[in-house]
């Protein structure tokens, strides 16, 4: 699989750009969090494309962003559960 570059992305329409980035990010996230991969990828795709490209080149920054997303998601779910039981 050839690396995803900024120029490769620039040739695609905006929605397709996010799909292309998601296709690269998803497998990495799936290895870390199989059940949450789709949701976490969706959250990360709201980040600027330039930052996402950087994360693909730097697995450490991608990993820390994924952990941040998991924390946000869990806090959100805990809040929802608390509201339901209240």
């Amino acid at each position: 699989q050839e690396p995803l570059t900024a120029s490769l992305l620039a040739g695609a329409p905006p929605q397709e750009q996010k799909q292309m980035l998601g296709e690269r990010i998803y497998p990495v996230i799936h290895e870390m969090h199989p059940t949450l991969a789709g949701k976490i990828t969706g959250m990360l795709l709201e980040i600027d494309n330039s930052e996402l490209l950087h994360m693909l080149e730097s697995p450490e920054s991608l990993h820390s962003k994924v952990e941040e997303a998991v924390a946000v998601l869990q806090a959100h779910q805990a809040k929802e559960n608390a509201q339901k039981s209240a």
Binding site: T41, G42, V72, L73
Partner: peptide
């Protein structure tokens, strides 16, 4: 610092992982 990530973001559906119907 508050995270900018949105827990209500739309879920991503990967084409390459799509189940055949």
């Amino acid at each position: 610092r508050k995270s900018t990530l949105n827990p209500n973001a739309k879920e991503f559906n990967p084409r390459s992982y799509a189940q055949p119907k």
